[in-house]
Simulated scan of single mutants.
Amino acid sequence: MMYGVQTSRRRDAQRNRAAIITAASEVLSGPEPPALMPEVARRAGVGQATLYRHFPDRHALTVAVIGHHLQGLEVAAAASVERPALFRPLLRELLRSLITMRPLVLLAQRLEPGARNRYVRRAIAALSPPLRSAQESGYVRHDLVPDDLILLVTMVRGAAESTGDVVSGLVAGERSIDLVLDGVFL
């Protein structure tokens, strides 16, 4: 009987952790982050003690959310290798998420440089196979190299951040995505 209790607690803990990460992703997709930890606990439907048991601080939560999104990118990228026409929507969604999740991006920029570089390299590693596949199938210009994706991200983020308000930033970001993708895809 004790085994069943431990198993259900583990499942409950796993559900709580997943709910916290989902809630944090939602909060960090807003225009400006509110008091992050209390709002995440509220949206996840857990107490602050449960939140802090899983993530002792904003840094730990940020790292978990970034890891969650990178894992999603890796899954989507792997699925698009055999379907090269999916690379454009994959890249569009990645660029769009960097605009809509600006609070997360700002928190990520505060991480130590080695950690930031590992995350960038992990994203590039995930995107490289579908990029090659899209190039081989004639969807993407052949002179684009994986590290150019960093340049694309920088250009889109720069356009979105150059405006004075969130709505204008989203509009500028969307427009820059269209322009960037039109320059990359054949």
Rank of each mutant, 00 (worst) to 15 (best):
Y3R: 12
G4C: 08
G4K: 12
G4Y: 12
Q6R: 08
Q6M: 10
R11W: 13
D12H: 12
D12I: 10
Q14H: 11
R15P: 09
A19P: 06
A19H: 05
A23V: 02
S25F: 09
E26F: 14
V27L: 04
S29C: 08
P31I: 10
V40R: 08
A44D: 00
Q48K: 09
L51I: 01
R53K: 11
H54K: 05
A60G: 07
L61M: 03
T62C: 02
T62F: 06
A64M: 01
V65S: 04
H69P: 15
G72K: 09
E82V: 10
R83C: 11
R83I: 09
R83G: 09
P84N: 02
R88Q: 06
R88P: 06
P89K: 04
L91A: 00
L95N: 02
S97L: 09
S97Q: 11
I99F: 01
T100L: 14
R102Q: 13
P103I: 04
L104R: 00
L104H: 04
L106Q: 13
L106Y: 06
A108H: 06
A108G: 13
R110L: 13
P113R: 13
P113D: 15
G114P: 04
N117V: 12
Y119A: 13
R121K: 12
R122C: 03
I124F: 01
I124N: 00
A125Y: 00
A126M: 01
S128E: 15
P129M: 03
P130K: 11
A134D: 06
A134R: 08
Q135H: 01
S137K: 12
G138W: 05
G138E: 01
Y139N: 04
V140M: 03
R141N: 05
D143H: 00
L144Y: 06
L144N: 04
I150D: 13
L151C: 12
L151P: 11
L152A: 13
V156M: 02
G158P: 00
A159R: 08
D165A: 06
D165Q: 02
V167H: 14
G169Y: 01
G169Q: 00
G169N: 03
L170G: 13
A172G: 05
G173H: 02
E174R: 12
E174K: 12
L179V: 15
L179M: 14
F185C: 03
F185T: 05
